[in-house]
Design a binder for these strands. Structure first.
Lengths: 229, 229
DNA sequence: CAGCTCAAATCTGTATGACAACTTTCACGA
DNA sequence: TCGTGAAAGTTGTCATACAGATTTGAGCTG
């Protein structure tokens, strides 16, 4: 096995990654200790640690001091952070692309949620809307509730891919949106839109939910266009 | 919950990441040398290097021995690898979720491509279809062309987010699909479907392109269901 | 002056050793 | 049986050293 590799860690990363992706190492399982990995790969601890760091960066591993490194759960975190980074890099040149992407995903999420969302999600959505009314005008709190609303719907869609992908772009879109306005009309308009979406989902009407969501997001997009972003 | 920085590198990562994401550090620009970063953060080289490794794992930095670390271009690679990893982790429990996601994205891509695709993309698509006819029956080559076809359409949509996200899941879906069949009818059926999509895009008919793409992918999904995946 | 060469400076990659801090294990004792 | 606490195991951080690649720049050459 000749590793004519410019970096020793590269080969090690590939090998460990492969074992994770093909299921030889299951989520939650512990990686061998750094010392053991040193023996296995005939490498110094420096190299092993670099490989682990990069795998952590990719979200495939989480590490606990004093305990060890563990295969990450297929949580949404890894995807979210990666996509967040990507979205940020592309954001200047193509914020509109991000918005369009979001509209597509969320419209479908609303449609699916009208069919699949359980009572717990509906309850959560109602609470969030109530919260939004209370914190009207307080940008940070309102923004937080706004994000929570959309992510709850994504979870209610029953498709974890949607939820993961959306988690990545949601915060960025909404934060960006709310730094560019602040008038009272806008707050009540958003709340009305959210209530309309909630009602449609609650009533189990997929098309109406999708339509309400789409109109809500297109309205946001229009504001961006008006602002000349 | 006190995040009393269990790891020195965490804070450094956040700070550097922030500078990249808010544009203070531009793509292609060089990061200060490890020694300089040591001074700036009052940390050992070990810690600095760990931060750099993780940022490399996230695809935000690329490093050249002897030269330095550079802010990565907003290429799709980082997103692709991350999403690939995520999709792999989630794949056992929810392959259908991934397929549905793909259907949603690709249908929209086809619709947009019918409007935005330039002559270069159309030419590429035609060549790919021609290739598929030639390599009919040769699974590896056919699969490669199949992937190229769908990615070219995604690029033709004019939205880089779609292209990036799709690049992450495409290979996995198609490879998986083609390991489970091999009869001649199937090959010609796929080619016909691709040609139909290509014609619609070429003719500039968004709805028809979207519909053709959707039927093509739903047909794939049906095969999975039949196979009891 | 322009351009080339090559050595020095700069920088990342790797190895080694040491110790701190945290977690897990397990034998011992109440 | 059930803690308890010491010991072993493991990751986090630091310091030092040198190999190997790249970049820089001074000095030579035409």
């Amino acid at each position: 096995m000749v590793w004519a590799m410019s970096q020793r860690s590269a080969g090690i990363i590939d090998e460990i990654e492969a074992e994770i992706l093909n299921g030889k190492l299951q989520p939650g399982e512990r990686l061998p200790s750094e010392e053991k990995l040193c023996e296995r790969f005939n490498a110094s601890r420096t190299v092993i640690r670099e490989a682990i760091q990069q795998l952590r960066g990719r979200g495939l591993l989480r590490t606990t001091k004093g305990s060890g490194s563990y295969i990450a759960d297929p949580s949404l975190d890894s995807l979210t952070t990666a996509m967040e980074a990507y979205a940020s890099l592309v954001v200047e040149a193509g914020f509109m692309e991000l918005i369009d992407f979001r509209i597509l995903i969320e419209t479908e999420c609303a449609r699916l949620a009208a069919v699949h969302a359980g009572e717990s999600v509906l309850k959560e959505l109602r609470q969030i809307v109530a919260t939004m009314e209370k914190v009207q005008g307080v940008r940070a709190k309102f923004s937080k509730a706004d994000i929570a609303f959309h992510l709850a719907i994504a979870r209610g869609s029953g498709n974890r891919i949607y939820a993961g992908v959306l988690g990545a772009v949601e915060r960025r879109c909404i934060d960006y949106a709310q730094t560019n306005r602040g008038d009272d009309d806008w707050y009540s308009g958003v709340i009305d839109a959210h209530r309309e979406i909630l009602d449609a989902i609650s009533a189990g009407l997929p098309d109406r939910a999708a339509d309400a969501m789409r109109r809500h997001l297109l309205s946001s997009k229009r504001h961006f266009v008006d602002l000349g972003v």
